[in-house]
Amino acid sequence: MSVATRNVKAIIPLLDRVLVQRLKAEQKTASGILIPEKALESLNEGKVIAVGKGALDKEGKHIKPQVEEGDRVLLPSYGGNTIKVGDEEFTLFRDSEIMAKITE
């Protein structure tokens, strides 16, 4: 499923959803050789663009998500819902689907 929109700021995740932009693989080797598109692997790393308020507990209170805007995260190979904004692709994941935060 793909949704087209013009501005990523118009997308506000609900509840425990997290909007992520996958990082792109390098298109050149260290020595400057271009890698064909078909040979490029999809990275399982991304940057958090927006975060919802969190899931609801039994009392109706929000449970704060474990990630914040700007975090680098490790993503599952499959899953999420793809959203196309202009030429860029973003993916919506549930907070619980994100595997890890990457710190430097």
Rank of each mutant, 00 (worst) to 15 (best):
residue 104 E to N: 11
residue 1 M to H: 15
residue 5 T to I: 12
residue 21 Q to H: 12
residue 87 D to W: 06
residue 19 L to C: 05
residue 40 L to M: 12
residue 65 P to T: 10
residue 35 I to D: 04
residue 56 L to Q: 06
residue 9 K to H: 06
residue 29 T to G: 10
residue 7 N to H: 07
residue 43 L to D: 08
residue 71 D to K: 02
residue 98 I to D: 05
residue 104 E to L: 09
residue 63 I to V: 14
residue 33 I to P: 07
residue 37 E to F: 04
residue 20 V to P: 00
residue 14 L to Q: 11
residue 27 Q to K: 14
residue 15 L to V: 06
residue 59 E to Y: 12
residue 101 K to R: 02
residue 20 V to F: 01
residue 64 K to M: 04
residue 90 F to I: 05
residue 70 G to S: 03
residue 1 M to E: 09
residue 41 E to G: 10
residue 103 T to W: 01
residue 37 E to S: 09
residue 51 V to Y: 05
residue 64 K to G: 05
residue 32 G to Q: 04
residue 62 H to K: 09
residue 90 F to G: 12
residue 69 E to S: 08
residue 56 L to H: 04
residue 90 F to Q: 11
residue 95 D to V: 00
residue 90 F to Y: 14
residue 85 V to G: 05
residue 45 E to S: 01
residue 73 V to L: 00
residue 76 P to A: 04
residue 58 K to P: 07
residue 95 D to C: 03
residue 89 E to H: 07
residue 6 R to K: 08
residue 15 L to E: 07
residue 103 T to D: 12
residue 31 S to L: 04
residue 104 E to S: 07
residue 1 M to A: 15
residue 98 I to M: 08
residue 46 G to S: 03
residue 57 D to P: 10
residue 13 P to G: 00
residue 63 I to W: 00
residue 80 G to R: 01
residue 89 E to Q: 11
residue 4 A to F: 15
residue 56 L to C: 07
residue 85 V to Q: 05
residue 83 I to G: 09
residue 38 K to Q: 15
residue 56 L to V: 10
residue 30 A to Q: 11
residue 52 G to H: 03
residue 87 D to Q: 14
residue 70 G to Q: 10
residue 82 T to L: 10
residue 28 K to Q: 09
residue 62 H to A: 14
residue 12 I to K: 15
residue 50 A to H: 07
residue 83 I to H: 03
residue 10 A to N: 09
residue 15 L to F: 12
residue 77 S to N: 14
residue 81 N to M: 09
residue 12 I to D: 01
residue 72 R to H: 12
residue 2 S to K: 10
residue 24 K to T: 08
residue 9 K to V: 11
residue 33 I to Q: 15
residue 80 G to Q: 00
residue 36 P to M: 13
residue 8 V to Q: 03
residue 51 V to T: 02
residue 92 L to F: 00
residue 78 Y to F: 13
residue 37 E to K: 11
residue 91 T to C: 04
residue 22 R to M: 08
residue 99 M to N: 12
residue 2 S to V: 14
residue 66 Q to M: 08
residue 24 K to N: 15
residue 16 D to C: 02
residue 47 K to W: 02
residue 73 V to N: 12
residue 78 Y to V: 10
residue 59 E to D: 13
residue 90 F to S: 03
residue 102 I to L: 14
residue 83 I to S: 01
residue 66 Q to K: 15
residue 1 M to W: 13
residue 67 V to Y: 08
residue 82 T to D: 05
residue 37 E to Q: 14
residue 90 F to L: 08
residue 9 K to L: 11
residue 37 E to M: 03
residue 37 E to A: 14
residue 46 G to D: 00
residue 85 V to S: 07
residue 62 H to D: 03
residue 77 S to C: 05
residue 89 E to K: 09
residue 57 D to Y: 06
residue 97 E to Q: 07
residue 72 R to T: 03
residue 46 G to M: 05
residue 14 L to P: 00
residue 99 M to Q: 09
residue 55 A to C: 11
residue 2 S to H: 07
residue 17 R to G: 03
residue 39 A to K: 13
residue 8 V to N: 03
residue 95 D to S: 11
residue 101 K to T: 13
residue 20 V to L: 04
residue 59 E to G: 00
residue 56 L to S: 03
residue 90 F to E: 15
residue 84 K to E: 11
residue 101 K to A: 12
residue 88 E to K: 15
residue 53 K to R: 11
